[in-house]
Nucleic acid binder design. Structure first.
Lengths: 198, 198
DNA sequence: AATTTACGATACTAAAAAGTTTCGAAAATC
DNA sequence: GATTTTCGAAACTTTTTAGTATCGTAAATT
């Protein structure tokens, strides 16, 4: 799903303004953080970016496409995966990194995307493709290194992923209880109890 | 937060039509199931209910209030809690009952509420008050019976609730993977491993 | 019978936001 | 220097929907 690059002719005429593009993507995320998906308007993005609405619709087919591309470029890159060699430590750090993200300004972006996904299949698919699936793959791969050592041979890593990240999304979206390191450490221990080799 | 009853004067004049009220609440849920929160219009509710929009706004201050009352009256009552005496069986049945609800037509109602809660604090608070908190209280109370017997003395039931229900909401909202009994049974065993008395 | 309140139907108002178009200027190619 | 394409600004169209108002009728009290 290339959205942009293949349209940028290298022929005649004024070339695309890459700075404007970056301003638009950055502004989109800012507005999304402040207003949520439903209240993010293209007018607000354009104004914040110091760009024209016409420029936005010149390069993206609709509002959601802008936000999806912004997610891919400016958020989905952020999380390196720890691989310390110690299973418990790997998971602890993974979860701590994630809640640091959720508790920061970007947390609202995730809320916004999940909310929008409920009524827009394109957003739903994009969120899974751009964020959920790659992250799960990476995380599973790191944990896989421990299989047979500290990790039980029969551990179901898909279930483990759900058990680790489900509660975090749950608290983020429902808003009961905070997302602290005390909490993620306790969650880590709960899950570890069932997958540690005895 | 009484919304209705105290307004129904018993004085003069035509009394409130309780059947119309029920039709409106029922229609609200139907439309919500089919269209999601954002696309649920008062016109659609009125038409479906065979009622007038004026009647809706006569008794509810705005659209969200109708949907919240419908949630409270027609959904939040549905889930009895199993109390078999066996901890594993209690949890298994709890989760099975819940996914039966989520996989049925009402599943979309939960998606819709969580989505709407992200941009409407009143909906967020109502969802927690009407659904989340009462259910968590009930569930914790049932599990509490086992403490000291099959359940470890030091088990953190808030964390356990998150570990059990977080993944289910996660799968419901993100839409990766199904919500089957095989899945909830596996999840039950994962959580049990950390809270069973050894 | 007179009064009061609710009802359904329907027209209406008002606001918001998506997406389009127009325009004059800027930045590239040939 | 002519052409092409983009740019920002701003007016504009269109659609959608929340919420209100009007009206004639139905169901209750006094």
């Amino acid at each position: 799903m290339e959205t942009t690059e293949e349209l940028a002719h290298k022929g005649r005429g004024r070339p695309r303004d890459e700075e404007a593009r970056n301003r638009i993507l950055g502004a989109a995320l800012q507005v999304l953080e402040e207003q949520g998906f439903a209240n993010t308007t293209t007018d607000a993005i354009a104004e914040r970016a110091g760009a024209s609405k016409a420029t936005i619709y010149r390069w993206w087919p609709h509002k959601a496409a802008v936000l999806i591309e912004a997610l891919r470029e400016n958020v989905a890159q952020e999380m390196p995966f720890p691989d310390t060699g110690d299973l418990r430590e790997d998971i602890r750090l993974q979860l701590r990194n994630f809640i640091r993200l959720l508790n920061g300004p970007h947390g609202r972006i995730f809320k916004a995307f999940v909310a929008a996904a409920q009524s827009d299949p394109e957003v739903a698919e994009a969120f899974k493709t751009v964020w959920v699936r790659p992250r799960r793959m990476d995380a599973k791969q790191v944990l896989e290194h421990h299989r047979g050592n500290s990790l039980r041979e029969d551990a179901d890593l898909d279930l483990v992923m759900d058990a680790l990240y489900g509660p975090l999304y749950y608290r983020l979206l429902i808003g009961h209880g905070c997302l602290s390191e005390v909490y993620t450490d306790a969650l880590t221990d709960l899950v570890l109890a069932s997958i540690l080799k005895t």
